[in-house]
Design a protein around this nucleic acid. Structure first.
Lengths: 199, 199
DNA sequence: TGATGATCTGGACAGTGTGAGTATGCCAGG
DNA sequence: CCTGGCATACTCACACTGTCCAGATCATCA
């Protein structure tokens, strides 16, 4: 399992890729430094040239997982009606959580630094799940169904619903069939949307 | 730090208590076998006489955390009106999550076996957060505001909302002031309740 | 009193993340 | 072409973890 060249060439990217693969099947706690370096074929401490600590690597992998989640959510969002679009965004969020639980937990999971993105959260134009929600809510505002000043509150309510729903279905109700899961998601989203329209 | 007697007497309970203390400040991943036994003043392997593995200890601590959460939620739930009562239950859930984040994460956290309680979940009469929700929803049914057959779906929607809300406030929006947090919780609960009444 | 069985201890092993110092080889300056 | 310089990767080491196995200790009941 030796490399041809002593220098790897693009170790940072390779470590990220390997971390993503590990996280896909085992969640964030499957990102183990020695395992990642082993997969790349490199000594454990070589990672320290590119990431100050394992936590830094995990954060970077979580970032990658977030963009993968966002791009995966693109499929299945095509409704023109703004209300239907918001529903589709919610469905896409939960669908990704159920399809890729490992990456979902890595992207949105309990890592203290995972969700807590400082300022650059809005600035760059990488696809992120949050962007989908923001666009959907902007559609509601444009259609006159949501007051602009209510957008942040609505965003929090939406995010809490779909995120909580994902956690529930993953951790609490794993025995549900796919149809039952879909029904549960639809029910919760119906409640959410009805509540939003009432306000 | 030597004990008087060779046998501890009630090591199992002492381990649970120490684990709970660790979890209170550090969350579930602060429950470290050697640290717990150290706190009790006992050799690491002594724990294996009472818990098959560290994960088993964690599960037991999570159980304890759940009853503590439920009893803590008792305070502040006193409204007679069923709708107001449901709101208070939700507020109590989030309030505990924000007050005791470590124990909340331990009780409801990502441990696969944490939320997933098999069958005896309903049977015994230990106080649990879920019971509060069930009683509140039963109040709604009794008042004719909720169809009995809609109870499970409503429970899922409620739980997803408050749980998601807790995670959001803990991980995503930790910079909010207490007042802003309260406002966010109230907003989300208003949306939820409005949505439930519309269905 | 003496044996038995539960309970606690000691040492050991395979892992882990991380720090300090060392070998390697690409790339610019002669 | 050769020769440094320097980023990159490696080796060795340490403290720490969960868990297994064999032995020491004690409470209890015949």
């Amino acid at each position: 399992m030796k490399r041809a060249t002593y220098h790897h060439g693009d170790l940072r990217a390779a470590l990220l890729e390997a971390g993503l693969t590990l996280a896909r099947t085992g969640g964030p706690q499957a990102i183990v430094l020695r395992e990642v370096t082993r997969a790349v074929g490199v000594a454990p401490n070589s990672a320290y040239g590119h990431f100050a600590t394992l936590t830094a690597l995990k954060s970077a992998v979580a970032e990658r997982a977030r963009v993968e989640m966002a791009t995966a959510m693109d499929g299945g969002i095509e409704a023109a009606d703004p209300v239907a679009r918001l529903r589709e965004v919610g469905r896409a969020y939960v669908r990704y959580a159920l399809t890729e639980p490992g990456l979902f937990r890595t992207a949105m999971g309990g890592d203290p630094a995972g969700l807590r993105e400082p300022a650059a959260f809005e600035d760059d134009d990488l696809p992120r799940p949050r962007r989908h929600l923001q666009r959907a809510l902007a559609g509601l505002v444009e259609a006159g169904l949501l007051r602009p000043e209510d957008t942040p509150r609505a965003a929090l309510a939406c995010w809490a619903t779909v995120h909580g729903l994902s956690i529930m279905l993953l951790d609490l109700l794993p025995q549900l069939t796919a149809d039952e899961q879909d029904a549960a998601v639809d029910d919760a989203l119906t409640v959410l949307i009805a509540g939003l329209r009432a306000a």
